[in-house]
Design a binder for these strands. Structure first.
Length: 333
DNA sequence: AATAGGCCCTT
DNA sequence: AAGGGCC
């Protein structure tokens, strides 16, 4: 998922409300550093986005879960005046604008952005003249600032997948890779590329030891030509940058190395969507199972999870918990 | 009171 | 070890 996001389709009748709520959400997260207000605004935006009809008053909005006094008053103000004083104030606050801008750099969060602004850095151009203040991740984020905000067309990810598979299978046919995330759910475009990889010989204990460590490095080393920068490289997770060809933007690409026996649960988990995962986990609990990123386990009567159920395919997971199989394209909840 | 939790990096 | 940032 990319750093900038907008859960509200522009087609929805309450898009104007969602827009200002999302802007307030970003402000609370990046500038005020109030994560709870951020969550509250996001929740309000998403509940409005789910309404089939345009909300006509704050009073009407207030009936919805997640919209209380404050937000309903803002909706009234927006309906009556066509704007929000609070938003105007934020727009006129240069410091707030600078922090918002700087947090768009990958690796720069609210804390780092505030530091930079305190040092007098308010634009991306300023930042380019102060590279000594940035760590490796942030330098990469700055280098590809424009590219990383561009969506990736499905066709391009498809081509990257083909190339990835060819490269990987070419040097070790015991590797399997799957691109998950919104791409796997069939979306026309994605924010980044989320690759899961496993190797026939990879056991759970091995993943974080030398075995996995060398294995992920070996995998990445063999992707030469595709990978153009490394953000971070751990035992189980690689974060980096790839470019399919010179005429295309650089893209964010992550690779996670998963032990064989956890692969299907991981693919399910990283395919999402978030809401779908939550629904599925809740259903699993009702059927007496606990499902996470790694395993499906039966819940004992004592509330202690039992031994992981052996899983041979994604469908197996659905079968065990008696949940009708949903193709990835049907998981866009 | 408020959706997780883990991985990786830096200090 | 703790904090920041990301997914």
């Amino acid at each position: 998922m990319s750093k900038r996001k907008n859960p509200c389709e522009s087609t929805n009748p309450n898009a104007e409300f969602c827009d200002f709520l999302m802007e307030l959400a970003e402000y609370e997260k990046n500038v005020s550093r109030n994560i709870h207000k951020y969550n509250a605004y996001k929740k309000a935006a998403s509940v409005l986005a789910a309404q089939p009809k345009k909300i006509e008053s704050g009073k009407e909005a207030k009936k919805l879960v997640g919209i209380g006094d404050k937000i309903s008053k803002k909706i009234d103000e927006f309906i009556q005046t066509g704007k929000l004083r609070k938003i105007e104030t934020i727009h006129n606050d240069e410091k707030a604008q600078a922090i918002s801008m700087l947090t768009r750099v990958s690796g720069v969060g609210p804390v780092k952005a505030a530091e930079l602004v305190k040092d007098g850095i308010i634009t991306i151009k300023d930042l380019k003249n102060s590279k000594q203040l940035l760590n490796h991740h942030q330098l990469i984020g700055l280098k590809y600032f424009e590219d990383f905000e561009k969506k990736i067309p499905r066709s391009e990810i498809q081509a990257i997948e083909n190339k990835l598979k060819a490269l990987v299978i070419g040097f070790d046919s015991n590797f399997t890779i799957t691109i998950c995330g919104s791409f796997r759910r069939g979306k026309a475009e994605s924010g980044d590329i989320d690759v899961l990889a496993t190797h026939l010989s990879l056991k759970p204990e091995g993943a974080k030891k030398k075995h996995g460590e060398t294995m992920l490095k070996r995998l990445v080393d063999n992707l030469e030509g595709l990978i153009i920068d490394v953000i971070s490289m751990g035992d189980t997770k690689f974060m980096g940058v790839c470019r399919l060809s010179d005429d295309l933007p650089a893209r964010r690409l992550d690779i996670r190395l998963i032990p064989c026996e956890q692969y299907h649960c991981a693919v399910l988990y990283f395919t999402g969507s978030d809401v779908f995962n939550k629904t599925m986990r809740t259903h699993a609990l009702e059927k007496g199972f606990t499902l996470n990123e790694y395993y499906l386990r039966p819940m004992g009567s004592t509330g202690v999870p039992g031994e992981p159920v052996p899983i041979a395919s994604e469908e197996d997971i659905f079968d065990y918990i008696e949940y009708p199989y949903k193709k990835p394209e049907e998981r866009n909840l």
